[in-house]
Structure formats: C-alpha cells, structure tokens
Nucleic acid binder design. Structure first.
Length: 832
RNA sequence: GCCCGGAUGGCGGAAUGGUAGACGCCGCGGCCUUAAAAGCCGCUGUUCUUCGGGACGUGCGGGUUCGAGUCCCGCUCCGGGCACCA
C-alpha cells in the first residue's frame, strides 16, 4: 500500500479552492448573495508581515479556520478575510541599515506570508485582501483622519509627550510600559512638542459602558481595559492663591478629608508655575528642580519607592472649607497629565502625602477616627479607612462616607467645587516622526493656517526618499518637493504636515475595509458594513489587550456617531490565544529554540501542523511545542488516510449507516455517532478543540479494532466501517481540511466542505445495557451490566449480588443506598 | 502591595459533585521483516499481593457531602497584569 503523502494531497485541494474561489463570499446586492443565510464574521488579528510567519501565526489561523469551517458547515455564510499591517518600524529600520526601501522589503514579506497562508490551506477570501501601506488603503485612513478632524476628534496641540530616543519618535501613553518604549525597550524622555492627538477621552465613559454590549470577551482583558481607562469619582475643589491672584482647581477622590489638607502640591510641568515664582527668591531653586525632573527619565520618575522630593514655592493657597492658609510646593510625585496637575495634600490620610510631609516636616492632621493600620506612625497615621469625622467643623461626628456627600453639596453651594469624575485614560497621540506610515493629510498655510487636504485630493501619497535616517523630525521633512505645496483654500504657497500616523491607526479600522475592499468610491459601503458587522469571532494575542483593542473600539464609537457604521462595538466575541513555547521558554532567534512552520509543513504536512496546534491543549493557555507531538498527530492522520485507501476500492457513492446492525457493526456505528455528538458539543463550548480531535482519534482507533472482521464479512458490516470512516473524515475537516476532502471524496464522491455538519442519531447514542459502578462506603468495588432503564430495586439486587461487592458487605450493615440511574450505586455501610 | 490565572502519571493534557488519568507523547513487550524503517497488537500512576484483590493517590491544612480534582474556608508555590493616577 502507498504512503500518506500530505504535500501531494494538500497541493491538489489548494488548487481546487484557489481556482474555484471556494471561500469567496458575496456582499448584499452582489450575485449569489442569499439574504436568508445567517452570517458569521471570523477574523484573526491583522498580521505584521516581517520575514516569515511564525508558529504563533500558525496557531492563530488554525484556530480561526477551524471556527470558520465549522460555521460554514452549520449553514452560515462565513466571511474570513486576510490582509497585512504593512506600515511600521521594522521595515523602516531595516531601510536605515541596508538602504533597501521599506516598500521592497515589505512586499517581499507579504508575498512570503501570502504563499505560506495558502500553503497552510487556510480558507481565506483572497478577493478581499488588503495591505495598509498601499495608497488604495491609506487613502481611507487619511479620510477617517479628516472625518475625525472635522468633528474636533483629531487636534494638534503642544504638550509634554514621551519621546523614544532610539526610535526617534513620540509615543502614545499606551506604548510606554514602565517608562520604556513598548517596541524597543529604550527609556523614554519627556519633551514638550506640538503633536496630533485623537480625542479618546471623549469616549472614556462609553468605552466603559459598552462592555455590556459584548457577547464574550475574556474577563481579564476587560479588567485590563477598565484599569487603563481608570475611572475615579470624586470632587473638583478650587483653592485660591490670593498673593498671585490665581485659582487652582484640584481633583480629589476624598473630599471628606478636605479639612486635613495641610499643604498643596503642583506638578513640575504646571503652566502657572512660572507666574508663581517669577522674580521671587525661590525662582532659581525651583527652576533647577523643574529642569532636573525634565532631564530624568520617565522610568526613574515612576519609581514608587524613591524618596519624595520637591521645593517650597514660598506662597500659600486658601483651603476653601476652613480658610486656612497652607503652603505650596512643587514636587514630581504630582503628575501633570492626571486631574488638574495639582493636588491638595492630606498627609493624615494619604500615604504619599504623608511621606512628603515627613521629608519637609509638615503638620499631619487627623480628620477621621479609626483603628491604626499597619505601617502607621505612633498616632496611627496615615489612616485610609472609614470612621467618624474629627477636626472638620460642623461635619464632626458624622461618618466620613456621609460627610463626603455633605461636603460636596456644601462646596457646590459655595461655588467652590462640585462632584467630578476623572479618567486615567488620555488622548491618543497619533503623530510619528517617521517615514513608513500614512501621511497626515494636513497643509500649513501662512494665511489660512491649518488646512485639511480636501477629500478629492486624497491620498496624500508617501513620496519616495533616499535617506530614511531619523533626525528628530520626520524624514519626510527633507523631501522638499513633496513638502512644498499650495494651500487648498487660497492657493498660496504652503507646506505639508511631515509627520505620519501611528500604525495602530491603520489597524483600527481594517475590519471595515474587508467588507468592501475593492471600493474606490468610499472606504466601505454602509450596507455592506451593516450586513457583516460586528466581527462574530475575533482571535489574537493577549498582548493587544489594551493597545489595538482599545483603539479599534474607539474608532467604532466615533464612526458610529458620524453615521458610518451601525455598531458601537466592533468585536462581539474575543478569543486570546496563549503563546507557544519551546523547552518551556519563549521562542527567540537568540536562544535558537524557534520552530519554523514552513519546515514543519514540509515534513509533516499542513494538516498535521494545524491539527497539532489545536490538539496541544486549551488554546487560551500557553503550550510547549514538541516535535514528537506533531509526529503523533501525523500518525493519526496517516491512519485515517489508510482507512480511506483501504475502503475506497469500490466505486465512491453515498455512505449511509444501515439499520438493524448488531455486534461490532453496531458498536462502530454507535462510536461514530458518539464522536459526532462529542465533537458537536465541544465545538459549541468554545475553543475546546483538543477534545474534539481526541474524540475523532477514539473513533479511528475503534474502526481499526473492528475493520478487518467487518470488511471480510462484507455487506452491512463493511458499510458500517465505511460510514464510520467517512464520519471521522468529516469531523476532522475543520482542522485537516485537505486530508478530509481527500478521504471523504474517495468514499462518498462528495466535497466535504459542501456537506452539512453531521448530526448524531439519538437512537445510536443509546445502548441496551449500561455499566453501573458499585461502591461500598464510597469506594468502587465492582461494575455491573444492567438493561438500560432497569428499575432501582433490580439494580440494587444485582449490585449486592456482585462478587466483590458481596465480599465487602460481609459483616456490615447497610445504612443507606444511593442509586444514580445509569451511573452508580453507593452502599453506605457500618460494622454490624 | 492590589487584581486575575494556574498547580492532576515520566511529559502535554481529559473528567455536567458520581469509574481520576480520555486522547496524544515517551517507555516496555509481541507480531510482520533476511534485517531495518514503516505498520499492526498489547502493557504502561505509586505500592503491597497468596494474582482473587488490597492500600495510597489530583500543591498543603481544614470543612460540607452517601460521594470532592470539581463546592466552601485558610495557606504555599508558579505565571500574567496593574502600581506615586490624588
């Protein structure tokens, strides 16, 4: 007999799918569109094409493809597109090193990715392919920018921003982790620059509220986003500096501690600082401090354990609740970009303020009574718990929670404050001083100022340049022919914006472009979007839990408010896959423990590679790659293939399980229906693919057990084996589509992907007798076979009669009898 | 420090409160073969055994229950996320 040669089989079926465009689906209004068919949008996160795909991609697309196939065979019209997130720094950094234009390297990588995805046999509608670096795509990225700009959701302003010296560009807050660049790990610096922002804060509350709209997201991803958005309730209270004639609003979550405020602290970047110190004797000292802070890295400043530092300003503000004058300080533990950049300090009830008070020997005042907490001083301060108010005038004696509301009401009455909500979320900084991204479609004119490029002049094409090296501003600034333009409004000489957009902008809307990828008149057609959105199953790595997923959610909400889409949440269901490790460690070239998907596919076939990554274990958890594991799966597929060969000697034709089977023929038929039931159930429970595959393995093992006898016998027995084999092929299709198509066609003459997912026959799931476990005192002592549905007394009698049970009942009295029908008997005993 | 996960054979992992270890890997034995590869069949938690079976066993300590890997309380260790956000 010949051998299972996966590459031969796979190539053959891949050609069929490609030539016939099997996975292409029509939009509403197009030929072949069936409005009756339910839709399913299955999407894996947009890959960044760099070199070759890795096993993480293999896992992601294997999982997604399994879902796509399963849904198709359950009657859904499945849209399953693919594209490339092809703007980005790696290609540009490569260009700086080698001089090779990013476009060239990018297109090479895309070709390699496309080839391998095809090689894996992933069921993709390639007619919808997109790449974010193409003018056909970024034209619409620019269009969305202008849409946001028109509505004030994109704006340009000067602000302290985070600068990565290695990547030579500013970064969004989300892209700074522990004071380091999320991409390259370099410590970031603070710079005061004019930059473009998207107003994500406008949607802060909605980004929280709309979690209710989601069907199924991993709870920890929602938690991470909630933490990132960081909503706090409290009050805004105004402190007045009489000597400078300035009002300072502060945000506090503890208005109940207002009477305990003994000093006042401002962030070093606070815009009023200059006015406060100019010409005073502390001016030099403060400036030196502020400059020192500016020089320090963000990571250093973020270190919580560091001793508190600061400088007194020699001025006071008035505490609005009691008229006390309290001293002002500048200190770097107060951050400019949270709240108002200034705080009231309550050392008696806030740990950080307490530390600062210790350094400067400032008074610490208790305003809430309570049991001392761990780490408090001799007076039990700072105290963060609840209790009755003290030293707080007419609020004394009240519980602090009650006083909280009373104080806010009083502040409001006096016009000195009000209840307030604050978010940690900041606006998204989207401009980058780099080349390989979508140009920001704005022109600066001496007369008209900032002018958006009119829609009909899009795209603003990225020019070709020679020198990609960053020089503190975008390399585009040197392309003078491109920069110099005319004002779209008045026609005078004008200059283009030279910054490009963060590549996360590109990937914040790509799932909409897929729905109408060829449209040259619009980014997408509203009807197409209404039909396909939202994404029914989104799959990707948890590393995007905040960045990409938050930005895409923001886009969906803004686009909805602008009337371009009908949904507020783009991804109804999210699945985050775990990493594949090797020898327990993350794969990396430097460790030399990488696994190359192309090698695995060449050696064992795409079907084995795909089935293995789904079989490794629960896909949300990380799993360790072993070559032996792939070989095991290959062995299993090979067994199934050989069954196909052995059984396809006769003519292919309809395979039906005959009625009235007995003995092994009945057993193998029942096993097939058991596998259908198990596989269908586990598919319904999410991504439990390992047990689906295990069920098909069990079925194949059962077929091997009985096949020789039944085939020799011929007739219904042989037909039962054929049915079981066709069923195994059918059930493995979402994971091993090529082998499945091959075996299924040989047996039945049909194309498995066009065949409905099988249904288990309840009649075949039942058996005449059931095995009942008999326990004595909770310990398994024997097993008995009884007719299905036998009455309890009959079961009990049989149980007590069982040999090993009888032995354990000797000298014992039965005190209780538990009977679980069809399962188990437990005889509770005590010594007689 | 706070918030999530997780802990089951030599390994990856299965188990609606009801037979712990499905399925796969590794290992061992047999068949086939001149031989090997491939394949097929069987065994494979630990331990005791008079070979009938017995004891122990899901990170640790308690509890609920006829019955707990599963539920409750208290820990340990490992992984991840957040952390001067007023």
């Amino acid at each position: 007999m010949s051998r299972y040669e996966p590459r031969e089989i796979e190539g053959r079926w891949q050609r069929v799918w490609s030539e016939e465009g099997t996975w292409e689906v029509p939009n509403p209004g197009q030929e072949g569109f069936d409005p009756e068919k339910p839709k399913a949008y299955v999407l894996e996160m947009l890959p960044y094409p760099s070199g070759e795909p890795h096993v993480g991609h293999l896992k992601c697309y294997s999982l997604g493809d399994a879902i796509a196939h399963f849904r198709r065979r359950n009657g859904y019209e499945v849209i399953h597109p693919m594209g490339f997130d092809s703007f980005g720094l790696p290609a540009e950094n490569n260009a700086i090193k080698t001089g090779e234009p990013p476009l060239v390297a990018t297109e090479r990588s895309i070709a390699s990715f496309r080839r391998q995805f095809a090689d894996w046999g992933v069921s993709i509608d390639w007619s919808r392919e997109l790449a974010t670096h193409t003018p056909e795509y970024y034209r619409w990225t620019q269009w969305i920018f202008l849409q946001l700009f028109e509505r004030g959701l994109a704006y340009r302003t000067q602000a302290p921003v985070q600068w990565c010296p290695k990547d030579a560009t500013v970064l969004a807050n989300e892209q700074v982790v522990d004071g380091r660049c999320e991409r390259c790990g370099t410590e970031v610096e603070t710079r005061n620059l004019r930059q473009w922002f998207f107003k994500t804060t406008e949607y802060a509350q909605q980004l929280l509220d709309d979690f209710d709209e989601l069907e199924s997201w991993p709870p920890h991803v929602i938690t991470m986003q909630k933490n990132w958005i960081g909503r706090s309730e409290g009050a805004e209270v105004t402190f007045r500096c009489e000597s400078a004639n300035l009002d300072f609003p502060v945000f506090t979550t503890r208005p109940d501690t207002l009477f305990g405020a003994t000093f006042f602290v401002m962030a070093p970047e606070h815009p009023y600082l200059d006015q406060l110190i100019e010409g005073t004797e502390v001016e030099d000292e403060v400036r030196e401090y502020v400059n020192g802070v500016a020089r320090a890295s963000v990571a250093e400043r973020g270190d919580e354990g560091r001793p508190k530092t600061g400088v007194p300003l020699g001025r006071t503000v008035t505490n609005p609740v009691n008229g006390e004058e309290i001293p002002m300080f500048v200190a770097d533990y107060v951050l400019m970009d949270y709240g108002t950049g200034a705080i009231m300090a309550v050392p008696g009830h806030d740990e950080r303020d307490y530390e600062f008070a210790q350094v400067f020997d400032l008074p610490v005042k208790r305003v809430i009574e309570g049991e001392p907490e761990e780490g408090g001083d001799a007076n039990g301060l700072p105290y963060s718990g609840d209790g009755p108010m003290v030293g707080s005038g007419r609020f004394d004696g009240m519980n602090n929670r009650e006083a909280y509301g009373e104080i806010v009401d009083w502040l409001k009455l006096e016009s000195r404050g009000d209840a307030a909500v604050n978010f940690r979320l900041r606006d998204w900084l989207v401009s980058r001083q780099r080349y390989w991204g979508a140009p920001i479609p704005i022109v600066y004119c001496d007369e008209c100022g900032m002018v958006p490029v009119p829609e009909d002049q899009l795209p603003v094409r990225l020019p070709e340049i020679d020198d990609y090296a960053p020089k503190g501003k975008s390399p585009l600034a040197a392309a003078s022919e491109w920069v110099e333009t005319t004002c779209p409004k008045c026609g005078a000489a004008a200059e283009r914006e030279t910054d490009t957009m963060d590549t996360f902008v590109d990937s914040s809307w790509y799932f909409l472009r897929y729905l109408d990828a060829q449209n040259s008149e619009a980014a997408w057609d509203r009807e197409a979007a209404d039909h396909w959105m939202p994404v029914d199953q989104y799959i990707g790595g948890v590393e995007h839990a905040i960045l990409h997923l938050l930005y895409a959610r923001f886009f969906a909400k803004a686009l909805k408010d602008m009337g371009h889409v009908g949904v507020v949440e783009p991804f109804a269901n999210l699945f985050t896959q775990g990493m594949i490790t090797r020898d327990g460690a993350k794969m990396s070239k430097s460790k030399g423990n990488t696994v190359s998907p192309s090698e695995i596919v060449a050696r064992h076939g795409a079907d084995a590679a795909r089935t293995y990554v789904c079989f490794m274990g629960p896909p949300e958890r990380s799993g360790d790659w072993t070559d032996e594991g792939v070989e095991g799966v290959h062995r299993f597929l090979s067994r199934l293939w050989r069954l196909g060969e052995e059984l396809s000697a006769g003519a292919a034709g309809p395979v039906v399980l005959p009625d009235g089977l007995e003995g092994e023929a009945r057993e193998v038929g029942a096993k097939a229906h058991w596998a259908i039931d198990k596989a269908t159930g586990d598919f319904g429970r999410g991504f439990q693919f390992n047990t689906v595959i295990a069920a098909v393995m069990e079925l194949v093992n059962e077929i091997y057990r009985v096949k020789d006898g039944l085939i020799a016998e011929g007739g219904d027995g042989a037909e039962a084996v054929r049915f079981a084999t066709a069923t195994a092929a059918s059930l493995i299709q979402p994971f091993a589509p090529h082998l499945s198509a091959e075996v299924y066609e040989k047996l039945t003459g049909e194309r498995v992907w066009e065949v409905a997912w099988p249904e288990a026959d309840p009649e075949m799931l039942r058996s005449d007798t059931v095995t009942i476990v008999v326990q004595v005192g909770g310990k398994v002592r024997d097993r008995i076979e009884v007719p299905d549905g036998a009455p309890e007394d009959e079961i009990l009698a049989a149980a007590k009669a069982a040999e090993n049970v009888a032995r354990h009942l000797e000298g014992m009295a039965i005190v209780k009898e538990i009977v679980v029908p069809g399962k188990l008997v437990n005889l509770v005993v005590k010594p007689a």
